[in-house]
């Protein structure tokens, strides 16, 4: 159900996500120390290439990682096989990429 390529994709995406999650958590904890509202957050993130790249990478890795993880769970627990399993993997991956990409655009542009 997963071969070496999907295994590598999931492990590598996890390795990329780990520091990104830490950066995200540390930043929000630091940024809200003195109180912060949505308008202030947007004023800092809009037009920022760095935040845009960081969250775009995060969305990409989450999409890959979650799609493969749900593929495994669906195969083992819901007994999905063959084309159905492939379709589910792609729908989850592309869906997360679309929704996450939309959120990144909203925060950056």
């Amino acid at each position: 159900m997963i071969g070496v390529r999907l295994y590598l994709a999931q492990r590598i995406s996890a390795m990329i996500m780990a520091p990104l999650v830490l950066i995200h958590l540390v930043t929000i904890i630091y940024a809200v120390q003195g109180g912060l509202d949505a308008a202030e957050i947007l004023s800092r993130t809009r037009g920022s290439v760095v935040w845009g790249a960081l969250y775009a990478l995060f969305v990409l890795t989450v999409s890959v990682h979650a799609a493969i993880g749900l593929r495994v769970v669906s195969h083992e627990w819901l007994k999905l096989r063959g084309t159905g399993l492939d379709v589910l993997t792609w729908v989850v991956g592309l869906g997360l990429m679309l929704l996450g990409g939309r959120a990144v655009v909203a925060v950056i542009m």
Partner: peptide
Amino acid sequence: VSSDAGCHN
């Protein structure tokens, strides 16, 4: 052992 039924499962 790298097949869809292999060690990575």
